[in-house]
Every structure is written in C-alpha cells, then in structure tokens.
Design a protein around this nucleic acid. Structure first.
Lengths: 116, 116
DNA sequence: TGATTGGTTAGCCATAAAGCTAACTATAGT
DNA sequence: ACTATAGTTAGCTTTATGGCTAACCAATCA
C-alpha cells in the first residue's frame, strides 16, 4: 500500500464521505450509495479505488458486498504527516535560534552606530 | 484551503518530495528543481498546485522565487485523520463490547446444548 | 549594452479520473 | 419458475493531470 494511492483516494470528497460512513461501522455497497446522487457503477468505482488504496476491505456473501475500513492505511498517512511536521518543527526551533542571533547582532550594530 | 486540494497535492510523489525538501528550509524554484529529472515548467506546475492547496507559499524578489512551507494545511489534514481514527477507535471499542457479548452468549448456548 | 540566469507563458500530447447509460449475472423471495 | 434485488461489466464522454518543447520576459553580471 502506497502513500500515493492513499492520498489520492482521500482527495475526493465522495470517497472521504464513504470513509467517514465506514468509521461508523460496516456497510453494503447499496447502503453506501444511498446518500449520494450518483449511479451505482460510479460509486462502485470509488469503492474499488478505496480498496486498491488499502483503506477499505470488502467481502461478498450471497449477493451483497459488505465494506469495512482498514485503518492501517489511515495510520500510515498520519505517520507520514506527523514525521513531516516534526522535521518542520525542529526547523522552526533552529529558525528561532537564528532569529535570536540576528536580534543580538542588531543590538550590537546599534551600539556600534551609537558609538560612531 | 480545502481538504480536497491538500490531499490531492500530497497524492503525487514529486510534490511530497518538494514538501519534504521544504521541511528543511526555504528554497528557490531552481533549487527545488535540481533533484528532479523534469523540465522546469513541469516542476512549476507542481509548485503552483502546492501553493493553491495552501501547503506552500512563495514570494518573488528580483528574479528568484523563494518557496516555503505553510504547515497549517498539513495540520488540517492531520486533524481530519486523527478525527477519523478516533471515531474508528470508539467504534472498535463498541465492537469489542459486542464481541464480549457474543462470547457470553456462546457460552450460555454451549451450556444449554450440554444441558439438553 | 549584451549575454546569462531564473522563471514564466503558451500550447501540445497521452493518460487517467469521474461521471453516465445500458445490458448482464447471480442470489433471494413468492 | 418468475420476479425483484444487488452488484457488475462494458463502453462512452468530458475534464483534469503530468509531462514536454519552444519562445518569451526580466533581472544580474561582465
């Protein structure tokens, strides 16, 4: 399961809505389709995309296919984002130090200028 | 800034690489382009997409455009994911309770069967 | 001022995405 | 057996995406 596909899957409002719906418990394709003004085949495509991204699993029993969330994929994305933010925050810390340094230099410049 | 666009922006490996590079500090368009075997205009498109998603900001001074990260967007996505996961975990808790219930029922059925 | 550098615009192409309808399969209910 | 239900397949359209080249500004630098 790749980041590309998970992010791609979540970049569509319909699919995010499906994910949100599935957070609330399993659902059949038909149940998932109800809230949307969309032909079934179109919705099925979304479900397939969600499946191939690893976000959703489904199993057919009889004539109904039940879909459920696989949260490992969600977790993967969270991990990636958190990692980026961490690096960023470290960088902000360094920036802060740099700004402090600049302030000090400014002060010393001011002193120099005064004393000139 | 909408979730659609942020997820969409992050669904491309090139753009994620740019974001990762920018975690490490500001960079000009040229600097960003170097690691990629890609014509400049193509890379510029990615930068624009990142900008319109709110993930990146840029400012042109002289003839060079500096790009930087705007982490609010990253945070937005993290919040969304965390919210989904929370709902999901609550659901798992409920599921666990349900499974416990099933177990008990099974036991009582077993007892019934034995006593039959 | 003339050449170089750094970015931008315009326009093209191939492929993928998101939707549709119509026709089909397979299970369940009567 | 017949009909209704639940998905599925196939095939079409429109629009978006990701890439390219070529030509074009606009700042520096020599």
């Amino acid at each position: 399961m790749q980041l590309d596909h998970v992010f791609g899957a979540l970049s569509d409002a319909t699919r995010r809505a499906i994910v949100m719906r599935l957070c609330d418990g399993e659902a059949s394709v038909g149940e998932l389709a109800k809230p949307f003004e969309m032909a079934l085949p179109s919705l099925m495509k979304h479900i397939r995309i969600l499946e191939s991204s690893g976000l959703v699993a489904s199993e057919k029993t009889g004539r109904v296919r039940m879909c459920s969330l696989r949260t490992e994929a969600l977790a993967t994305v969270e991990v990636w984002l958190a990692a980026q933010r961490e690096i960023w925050e470290q960088r902000l810390d360094r920036l802060e130090m740099y700004v402090e340094k600049l302030k000090k230099e400014k002060k010393s410049n001011a002193r120099k200028r005064k004393s000139k």
